[in-house]
Design a protein around this nucleic acid. Structure first.
Length: 423
RNA sequence: GGAGAGAUGGCAGAGUGGUCGAUUGCGGCGGUCUUGAAAACCGUUGUACCGAGAGGUACCGGGGGUUCGAAUCCCUCUCUCUCCGCCA
C-alpha cells in the first residue's frame, strides 16, 4: 500500500497517476487525508491524557511510600475521571485507525511515470521480440500431442481431483522435472539463492504481498487451519522478509524458488482454459529480489534480461510486452510480460510476468533497510518474476517442435531429461 | 491427540506490582593505547507514532482483564521445548 506520507504530500499526483490505471482515487484520497488528520488530533489528545495519568500514578506510589494514604486517595479519584476520557479517546483512535487502514488498502500502487495509459491488453507495447516463428502446417495442438504420446492425462486428473489438475505421465512427467531443474540451475548461476518454501501461508503473509484482502477468492483456503494455498512462490518467498530490517550492503537480496502454484481461476472459460492454458495447479520457478529504491529499475531490467535468456535457450519465438496501466496488477508499478508463440493454437501465450512493486509490498511487509552507518530505516523495493511458469512453455514446446516422427526436445533440456525425442 | 515447561532487546539471560524501555554478558559501532593487529579500557547501540522543538506516547509472543500503577497477577489464543501415543 501507499504510505500516508506519499498521499499527504502528493495528493494531486497520486490521483493523476492512478488515472493511468483507470482508477478514480479522488474520494478515497480525500477520505484518507481526513482520517489521518483526525488520527493525529486524537492521538495527541490521548497521549496527553495518558501522560497525566502516568504522572499521577507515579506520585501515588511516592505518597504511599511516605505513608500519606489520604493524599494518595485524592489522586486516585482524579485518575478515575481521566480514565473515562482515555477510554473515549482510545476507542475513537482505534476506529479511526481501522477506517484509515481500510481506505488505504483500497488504493492500487502508483504506476511508474513512464507507464502508458490504456484499457486492456491491446494497449500493451511490444518492447523486444526474438526467435524463429514456426512454419508448420496442420500442427496439432498440445492437448492432442499430449494424448498421442501419452504425456499428460487431463481426464485422469478430473477423476482424481477435478478439471485443471492434469496428471503428467512418463516422458511428460520427466519433462516437468527437467524444466524445473533447468530453470533453477539457470537462476542459481545468475546469482539467485534457492529456497524451497511452504505451499501454504497464513493470513499475514497473504496480506504482505497484497493477495489479501482483495484477491481472496482467487486462492484456495483451508478453513480448519486458516491457511491459504499459495498462488505463486512470490507469496512465501517475499514474506521471508516481512518485519525485517536489512543493511544496505545486503541489497539486492536475490532468491529463486520452485513451487507448485494453486489458483481457483473463478470465472475463466473457453479456449483460455483448454489443455495447459489455464490450470488450477501448475509448476513455476519464481525469482524474487529486494532492492535499494535507487536501483530497483536496474534490477527490473536485469530480471527481464534473465527471463529472456531462458526463452532464447529454449528456442521459442518470444516477445516482451510492457503492460499499460489498465492491464497492470493492483500491486505493480511496472510490469513486463513475456509471451511465446504456439504453432497450433496460432497465438501468443503469457509465460512470465516480471514486476517492480517499489515500496508497495514493502510497506505492508514492513520490509526496510538502513543505509550503512545510517540511523533511519526506510522501505525497500520488492520485485519478482516468473522464470518460468511451466504449462504454457510445455504447450509451446510440444506444438512448435512436432514433426512426423515425434517431438524434438530443445538441446538445453537434454542433459536434464535424458532424451532428445518424444515419440 | 494426552501431560508438563516456557515465550523478555541482534543473541544469551536477569527481572514476580511502582522511578523498568528494562541489570548483566556477548556481538555491533565509535574512541584511547599500538608500527599494525589482538588484549585491555572508555563511550555508544530497538522500533513506531505525535510534536517546529523541548518532550510525550506505545511496544517484554497476540488479544482481553484486575489495579491509581503490570514485563511482573488473572483469563484466553498462538507458537516453541520435554515426555507419552500415533505416523510419512
Amino acid at each position: 500500500m501507499l504510505t500516508l506520507k506519499q498521499i499527504q504530500e502528493n495528493k494531486q499526483e497520486v490521483i493523476e497517476r492512478l488515472k493511468v490505471k483507470n482508477f478514480d482515487a479522488t474520494a478515497i484520497v480525500d477520505q484518507i487525508i481526513h482520517l489521518d488528520n483526525q488520527r493525529k488530533v486524537t492521538q495527541a489528545k490521548s497521549d496527553q491524557l495518558l501522560a497525566e495519568t502516568n504522572a499521577l500514578s507515579k506520585s501515588i506510589g511516592l505518597l504511599l511510600k511516605e505513608g500519606k494514604a489520604e493524599e494518595a486517595n485524592v489522586s486516585k479519584e482524579k485518575t478515575a475521571a481521566l480514565k473515562e476520557q482515555i477510554k473515549e479517546e482510545t476507542t475513537l483512535l482505534e476506529t479511526t485507525e481501522k477506517a484509515l487502514q481500510a481506505a488505504l488498502v483500497q488504493l492500487p500502487n502508483l504506476p511508474h511515470t513512464s507507464v502508458q495509459a490504456g484499457k486492456s491488453a491491446e494497449d500493451n507495447i511490444t518492447v523486444r521480440e526474438g526467435g524463429q516463428m514456426p512454419t508448420l502446417t496442420n500442427a496439432l495442438p498440445h492437448w492432442d500431442l499430449a494424448k498421442k504420446y501419452d504425456l499428460i492425462d487431463f481426464e485422469l486428473g478430473v477423476k482424481l481431483t477435478g478439471a485443471g489438475f492434469p496428471v503428467y505421465k512418463g516422458k511428460g512427467a520427466k519433462l516437468q522435472r527437467a524444466l524445473i531443474n533447468f530453470f533453477l540451475e539457470e537462476a542459481i548461476a545468475a546469482g539467485y539463492q534457492e529456497v524451497m518454501p511452504p505451499l501454504m501461508v497464513n493470513e499475514e503473509s497473504g496480506f504482505g504481498t497484497g493477495n489479501l484482502p482483495d484477491k481472496e477468492g482467487q486462492m484456495y483456503y483451508v478453513e480448519v487451519d486458516k491457511l491459504y494455498l499459495i498462488p505463486t512462490a512470490e507469496v512465501p518467498v517475499t514474506n521471508i522478509y516481512r518485519d525485517v530490517i536489512l543493511n544496505a550492503s545486503q541489497l539486492p537480496v536475490r532468491n529463486c524458488a520452485y513451487s507448485a502454484c494453486f489458483r481457483r481461476e473463478a470465472g475463466s472459460y473457453g479456449k483460455d482454459v483448454r489443455g495447459l492454458n489455464r490450470l488450477h495447479q501448475f509448476d513455476k520457478v519464481e525469482i524474487v529480489q529486494v532492492a535499494h529504491p535507487d536501483k530497483s529499475y536496474e534490477t527490473l531490467e536485469g530480471m527481464v534480461a534473465h527471463v529472456q535468456t531462458l526463452v532464447e535457450k529454449l528456442q521459442l519465438p518470444w516477445r516482451i510486452l510492457r503492460l499499460c496501466g489498465g492491464d497492470m496488477s493492483f500491486t505493480s508499478a511496472m510490469t513486463y510480460d513475456f509471451e511465446v508463440y504456439s504453432a497450433a493454437q496460432e497465438r501468443w501465450l503469457e509465460v512470465s510476468s516480471v514486476s517492480n512493486f517499489e515500496s508497495f509490498q514493502a510497506n505492508r511487509l514492513k520490509l526496510r533497510f538502513k543505509e550503512d552507518g545510517g540511523k533511519k530505516a526506510q522501505l525497500a523495493h520488492t520485485l519478482n518474476g516468473s522464470a518460468l511458469a511451466l504449462p504454457r512453455i510445455v504447450a509451446a514446446l510440444l506444438e512448435n517442435n512436432q514433426f512426423e516422427g515425434g517431438i524434438r526436445v530443445p538441446e538445453v533440456l537434454v542433459p536434464f531429461c535424458g532424451f532428445d525425442i518424444i515419440s
